[in-house]
Nucleic acid binder design. Structure first.
Length: 273
DNA sequence: GCATTACCCTGAAAGC
DNA sequence: TGCTTTCAGGGTAATG
C-alpha cells in the first residue's frame, strides 16, 4: 500500500532512469482505474519528453516537455516498473509507456484503485487532485504551531485526521499508526483535546517515522515494489502496524487492533493514551 | 460545513 | 481438495 515514503522512493528511482526520455508510444489496457483513463491520454503523452519528476503527497508528477503534467497515483496496489521493451503485458498491466531508447515504464495495478491522467496546465496547483492536498509533512511549514489550531477546531479522532489528505498530504494507515505509537497518543483521541506540547511531539514523531521509512526504501507487504521490482525493508522496523496480539517492544504488553471508519488501527493500550 | 459511511476492486486467507 | 466468504485499504461520493 504505497504511502508517501514509497512514492518518494519511486520518485528518486525514476529521476535517475527516465528524466530526459521521449515517449514514443503508449499502450493502454482499456480498463478503468479509480477513474477511466482519458481517451486523449495516450495521444497527448506521445512525443513529449519527461523533464522533471516530483511528488506531492502520495501523487507522482512527471513534468513533460512541451509543458504538461503526467499525474500518477498508485492507489492500493499500483506498481511502476522500469525495464527494456519486449516484456509481455500481464493480466494487470494497464499502461505501458515506451520510450525512444528501447526502455519502457509499465503500470500494473490489480485492484485498480490507482490513477493515470495528463493535464495540459502551466502549474501543478492547477490540477484538481493536487490543489486539494494539504501540508506536506516533511515541508518546512509542518510544525506544531500550524497543526495545533487545526486540531482545536476538529471533533474527529486524531487517527482519522492524520489520514485526511486535505489536511496533511502523504500519511496513510501504516505511518499514522506508527507515528501515534511514537508520540504515545491513542488513535481514538479527539483532536481538540490535544495540548500544544502533545501536538509538537506528534509532529516530531511523524517526521521521524516518514524519514526512517524513506531511508528503508518504503514498507513492502504484498504490494509495494520500486521501479526495479525490489521491495523496501521498512516492514522490519514497524512497532505496531499488523502486529495485533504480539508484544509491544516498549512495555511488552499486547498490541491491539480497533476499527476506525473503514480502517484498522494498531496500538499499544498501555503506551498510548 | 463537518463527520461518518459505503463503495469501487481483486488476491489472499479463512471457513466450510 | 475445492468452493465460498471475508478482509484489506486510498480516495471520494453520498448520507447524516
Amino acid at each position: 500500500m504505497p504511502e508517501m515514503p514509497e512514492v518518494e522512493t519511486l520518485a528518486r528511482k525514476l529521476r535517475k532512469t527516465v528524466v530526459g526520455k521521449r515517449v514514443k508510444e503508449v499502450f493502454l489496457s482499456g480498463l478503468p482505474l479509480r477513474k477511466p483513463i482519458s481517451k486523449s491520454f495516450a495521444s497527448k503523452l506521445q512525443g513529449r519528453t519527461i523533464h522533471k519528476i516530483s511528488r506531492r503527497g502520495k501523487y507522482l508528477l512527471a513534468e513533460m516537455n512541451p509543458k504538461a503534467y503526467w499525474l500518477i497515483h498508485l492507489g492500493m496496489s499500483g506498481r511502476i516498473l522500469y525495464h527494456l521493451q519486449g516484456n509481455a503485458a500481464t493480466k494487470h498491466t494497464h499502461a505501458i509507456i515506451r520510450f525512444s531508447d528501447a526502455t519502457e515504464l509499465e503500470y500494473r495495478d490489480h485492484r485498480r484503485f490507482g490513477l493515470l491522467a495528463l493535464y495540459e496546465v502551466l502549474r501543478p496547483g492547477m490540477i484538481p487532485e493536487i490543489r486539494s492536498l494539504g501540508m506536506d509533512p516533511l515541508g518546512a511549514g509542518f510544525n506544531g504551531k500550524w497543526l495545533w489550531p487545526l486540531l482545536q477546531k476538529s471533533q474527529q479522532d486524531i487517527k482519522s485526521f492524520l489520514l485526511d489528505q486535505r489536511k496533511i498530504a502523504g500519511i496513510g494507515n501504516i505511518y499514522a499508526c506508527e507515528s501515534l505509537f511514537f508520540a504515545q497518543i491513542h488513535p481514538a483521541r479527539r483532536c481538540f483535546t490535544m495540548s500544544p506540547e502533545e501536538t509538537a511531539h506528534l509532529v516530531g514523531a511523524i517526521r521521524k517515522v516518514l524519514k526512517a521509512a524513506i531511508r528503508h526504501n518504503g514498507t513492502s507487504f504484498s504490494d509495494f515494489l520500486d521501479s526495479d521490482g525490489k521491495p523496501g525493508n521498512n516492514q522490519d522496523y514497524l512497532m505496531v502496524f499488523q502486529r495485533e496480539g504480539e508484544k509491544c517492544y516498549r512495555c511488552r504488553g499486547p498490541i491491539q487492533r480497533m476499527r476506525q471508519g473503514n480502517r484498522s488501527s494498531f496500538y499499544c493500550a498501555a503506551c498510548q493514551d
